[in-house]
Simulated assay, not measured.
Amino acid sequence: MSEAKRPWHYFTSALWDYNVALVQMLALCPALAVTTTATNGLGMGLATTLVLILTNAIISALRHTISPEVRNPVMIGLIAGVVTLIDMAMNAWMHELYKVLGLFIALIVTNCAVLGRAESFSLKNPVIPSILDGAGMGIGFTWVLVLIGGIREILGSGTLFAQASSLLGPHFQWLEITVLPGFQGILLAVLPPGAFIVLGFLLAGKRVLDRKRAERRIKSHGELVVLQ
């Protein structure tokens, strides 16, 4: 079995090479709207990851029974059901975070990444690869949200994961860090333009890293050819 066909590859490739936000440019609305802090980004990312895993698993398990004529309404209905359950669970057990994220939890139903993975992957693959794909896509999305939120939070207030214990629960108190004590903050960082600026730098940074990786692979391949 080739590397590209191994189930674990679906997870690892989704973290970077096919990242939802930085490569596929999907789900940018929550990526820009809720990432005023790293805590908000983490909460939104984890909720989206759970939706991706559950919907991928359910749709993959039912892929042979879903008629092609009604697959889109069925998939949207399944996604809406999963999102509703997660929305209710967050309202019950993470109410403070639920109040911060608000409507964006319910809007996961319209997230192109969720429906896109169901359409392009889960309907064509077994359950285990679908779960790994959903987990990879979700975690890849989460680290981008956390990174954007973390950069904006440090520049905006000098803190990192502020109010994590009140929003995510007391077990997350260890995440709360004051990076720059006494820092007044840059207002632009927490305003909407700040999200676009940070995302732009991340996109540029990924392009540079990918180019350097490609150059190293080409150089390494050339050296192997010479040695052979």
Rank of each mutant, 00 (worst) to 15 (best):
A47W: 11
G116R: 15
G140C: 01
G185T: 02
V23Q: 09
L78C: 13
G81W: 03
T178I: 01
T39A: 04
N40K: 04
L180P: 00
T65C: 03
G116S: 14
G136S: 03
L203Y: 04
A195W: 09
P30Q: 13
L62E: 02
E3V: 10
P129I: 10
L147M: 09
A164D: 01
F141Y: 03
A57K: 09
W93Y: 15
P7E: 03
A21N: 15
I58N: 11
L42W: 00
L202A: 02
T37V: 09
G182W: 00
T48Y: 13
Y18D: 11
K219E: 15
G149N: 02
L155G: 09
E3F: 07
G200W: 02
S122N: 05
R6K: 07
A80F: 07
M44R: 06
G200K: 14
L115I: 15
V51K: 08
G81M: 09
A4M: 10
T65K: 08
P193Q: 08
L103Y: 06
L155K: 06
H221L: 14
A31G: 07
H9D: 03
M137L: 14
V74Q: 06
S2L: 13
L199H: 12
A27H: 08
L26Q: 15
I76K: 10
L103Q: 13
Q173T: 05
L191P: 13
G41T: 08
K124N: 09
L188M: 14
H95T: 11
A4K: 14
A27K: 12
R63C: 02
L22G: 10
R217M: 11
G150I: 05
V127S: 00
R217C: 10
T142K: 02
H171W: 12
G43K: 05
D133G: 14
A118M: 08
D17A: 05
I177N: 00
M137S: 12
A204L: 11
G149W: 01
Q24R: 15
M44E: 02
G156A: 07
L202Q: 05
V51D: 05
T65V: 04
T12L: 03
C29P: 08
R217V: 12
N91G: 14
S130Q: 07
L52F: 05
G222D: 15
I218T: 13
